[in-house]
């Protein structure tokens, strides 16, 4: 089931939380929705799930509009809201039964679906406990289980791994990846390694607008642009080395790092590493370190979301 977001806008008073947002998500795709706090991620998700009405624009989920066919859309969406709200005084199994019934799962299938969810989400030992007695990690699994109980075609997860320990994060990510291969998933987060690990495509939004879009690899490439290496050269006089490095044709800029190494930025779309090696050989210097500096998504994120 594809999702098309068209010129989606939400105003709170005079402030625009979401501003003319447009993007598509295809079946079998996991879309990472990134942005600083208050960028409009949650508001966008609340509109897709028909909780909030947009001030302008429309979202179509599998051909149905959120303005007209809310009940049909709600049937095909599984939603895990931010902070994972649950009825703490209910037992896990009772809560799943309630969620299934209200999602319209047929009575004859409900028992099997509950068993399936308990198995998939690893809740077997906890199924008779009250949700309030569970740890945060298990609550998160219950949240996922209720979102998946009716085998929805669209899955919307608002910060699904907040507050989990590293092991749980890995487990939940694996689960999402596994499920996401056949469904349409939108996942919001501000944890960057998370999107790299789980998402096929990333949208970064800031102030309600898209500021960057693409696969994790593309975005990283875009961010790096020029090649940067950290280089340590010994047995040569520092000023002379600096001078000669600067004179290399493929080198754009040389910087002296506080620890005595050089940071060398190559010319656009060129590599200077072979030239640096040859220079050292010619002059009898010893190259003791050459580390390529990887730019990561964090740089992209910072570049596009920090103003000025």
């Amino acid at each position: 089931m594809d999702i098309q977001v068209q010129n989606l806008t939400k105003k709170y008073g005079r402030q625009k939380a979401v501003d003319q947002l447009s993007f598509d998500v295809r079946t079998g795709e996991i879309l990472g929705f990134l942005g600083p706090n208050g960028a409009g991620k949650t508001t966008t998700m609340k509109m897709i799930t028909c909780f909030l009405a947009p001030s302008d624009g429309d979202v179509s989920v599998g051909g149905f509009s959120i303005l007209k066919d809310q009940q049909k859309i709600k049937r095909s969406i599984g939603y895990l809201p931010e902070h994972n709200p649950l009825y703490l005084d209910m037992a896990v199994i009772d809560y799943l039964r309630f969620s299934g019934a209200i999602q319209g799962v047929k009575k004859s299938q409900l028992g099997d679906r509950i068993k399936e969810m308990i198995r998939v989400c690893g809740l077997n030992k906890e199924k008779h406990k009250k949700i309030g007695e569970l740890s945060k990690g298990f609550r998160q699994r219950v949240g996922l289980a209720q979102a998946l109980i009716h085998d929805p075609e669209v899955l919307i997860l608002d910060e699904p791994t907040t507050g989990l320990d590293p092991n749980q994060i890995v487990e939940i990510r694996e689960l999402i990846k596994h499920i996401g291969s056949q469904k349409t998933v939108i996942l919001s987060t501000h944890i960057l390694p998370e999107v790299e690990a789980t998402c096929d495509r990333i949208i970064i939004i800031n102030n309600g607008k898209i500021v960057a879009e693409g696969t994790p690899e593309n975005l990283r490439k875009e961010a790096s642009g020029t090649e940067i290496s950290h280089v340590r050269i010994e047995d040569g006089e520092r000023d002379a080395v600096f001078q000669r490095l600067q004179e290399l044709e493929t080198v754009a800029m040389v910087d002296l790092l506080p620890n005595g190494a050089f940071s060398i930025e190559s010319q656009l779309e060129q590599t200077s590493r072979r030239d640096i090696f040859r220079l050292c050989v010619e002059n009898g210097w010893v190259l003791t370190e050459m580390t390529p500096v990887e730019r990561d998504l964090e740089d992209v994120f910072r570049n596009v979301t920090i103003e000025n």
Binding site: K46, T49, F51, K74, Y79, P81, H83, P85, Q103
Partner: peptide, 10 residues
Amino acid sequence: GTLELLLTKP
């Protein structure tokens, strides 16, 4: 926040 979850059910 359970109200939000409830109201996003069909």
